[in-house]
Nucleic acid binder design. Structure first.
Lengths: 178, 178
DNA sequence: AAGTTTGTACAGTAAAAACTGTACAATCAA
DNA sequence: TTGATTGTACAGTTTTTACTGTACAAACTT
C-alpha cells in the first residue's frame, strides 16, 4: 500500500471520529456543523486559516468566519499569531477538561440563574395575590402554585451547588482527572 | 378588584414563569414549545387531556400529541387514569430531582458513550495504520492524532465517573436535596 | 499613494424544523 | 351493528435556521 493510500486512510479515520464528535457536541450547546469545524481544527496539526477550513469542509468562508466566532466565544478555539502571516490563524484549546467544562458551566449557570430568578419573582407575585384575594378556590390554586414553585426553587438551589462544584474545581478532588 | 381580574393575574404570573422555564429547558434537550407544554401541564392543577392542552396553548391537537409523546419518553409527564373518562389524561412528574436529573443522565450517558466508543475505535485504527506505514511524516501525524484521542479518552472516562455520580445517587450524599 | 489581501455584514437562497389539517384506525356507546 | 369520539400517521404548509455570494471596510504591501 503506498503512502497516498495510507494518508487517505488517516483522513477517513479522522473523519469518522469527527462525525460522531459533532453529532454529540450538542450537549455543550454547539451545533453539528460547528462541531465538525471544531473537530477539523483539532486534528489539523497546525493552526488553520479560514481558507484552510473552507477548503477542508467544502463550505463558504463566510460560514467559517461565523463558525469560528461561535467556537471562540465558547473558548473552544483561540486565535494565534504567526510572524509573517497576514491571515488569522486558529487552533483548538487542547485541554478538554478546560474547554468542555467551561462551556458546560456557562450554559448551566446562565439557564439555572434565569429560572431561579423567574421562580422567585413568580412566588413573590403569587404571595401578593394571595393577600389580595378572598375567593376560596383561587386561594387554593395559588397555594398549590406556590408549593410547586418552592419545589422548583429547592431544585435550583441544589443545582446551583452542583454547578459550583464544577466552577470551583472541587469536583476534581472527588473525581480526579485521569 | 373582582375575582375574574385576579384570576387573570394568576394566569399572567404562570405564563411569565412558564416562558422562562421553556426558554431554558433546552439544557435538558427539550424544545421550547415542548417546554411550554410541560409548564402548562405542571401548573394545571389537574391532569390534562390533549384537547385541554390544545385550547390552553392555542395549538393543534396533533402538536399536543407529539409533544406529549416527547415529554413522556423523557419521563417528564405520565399518563394517568380516571374512571369514566375516555380521553387520555396527562400530568407532570412533580419531583424535579427525579425528572430533570434522569433526562440529564440519559442525554449525557448516551452522548458520552458514543464519543468514547468512537474514540476507542479511531485509536485502534490509527495504531494499525501506524504498524503498516513507513513514511516518516505520516508516522508523526498518526502519533499526534493518537495523543489527542488519548486526551479525549481520559476526559470521557472522567466524565463517565461524573455521570455515574448522578446515576448512583451518590451526588446526594455530597450535596443533599434541599 | 494605489493595489492586494483578508475578514465580515448583509441580503438572498436553500435546507430543516415546526406546525397544521385531513384522514383514518382504534375504542367505546348504544 | 352503527355511530360517535379519540389519538395519531401522513402530507402539505409555514416558519426558522443554515448557508452562500457579493460587496465592502480594514489592514497590509509596494
Amino acid at each position: 500500500m503506498d503512502v497516498s493510500n495510507e494518508r487517505e486512510k488517516l483522513q477517513q479515520i479522522r473523519h469518522r471520529f469527527i462525525s460522531v464528535l459533532a453529532q454529540n457536541i450538542g450537549l455543550y450547546g454547539i451545533s453539528e456543523t460547528n462541531g465538525r469545524l471544531y473537530g477539523t481544527i483539532l486534528f489539523s496539526n497546525k493552526p488553520m486559516t479560514l481558507d484552510d477550513m473552507s477548503k477542508a469542509l467544502g463550505m463558504s468562508k463566510t460560514s467559517m468566519s461565523t463558525g469560528v466566532r461561535v467556537l471562540s466565544e465558547a473558548d473552544m478555539v483561540t486565535r494565534v499569531w504567526e510572524k509573517g502571516n497576514r491571515k488569522d490563524l486558529y487552533e483548538t484549546e487542547d485541554d478538554w477538561y478546560k474547554s468542555f467544562i467551561s462551556v458546560f458551566i456557562n450554559r448551566w449557570r446562565e439557564g439555572t440563574d434565569k429560572n431561579k430568578h423567574a421562580a422567585t419573582r413568580a412566588k413573590e407575585a403569587l404571595e401578593m395575590l394571595l393577600d389580595e384575594t378572598n375567593d376560596e378556590d383561587l386561594i387554593e390554586e395559588i397555594k398549590q402554585d406556590i408549593d410547586k414553585l418552592e419545589g422548583a426553587l429547592h431544585y435550583y438551589e441544589w443545582l446551583d451547588e452542583v454547578i459550583h462544584l464544577f466552577e470551583s474545581g472541587d469536583i476534581f478532588k472527588l473525581i480526579p482527572k485521569k
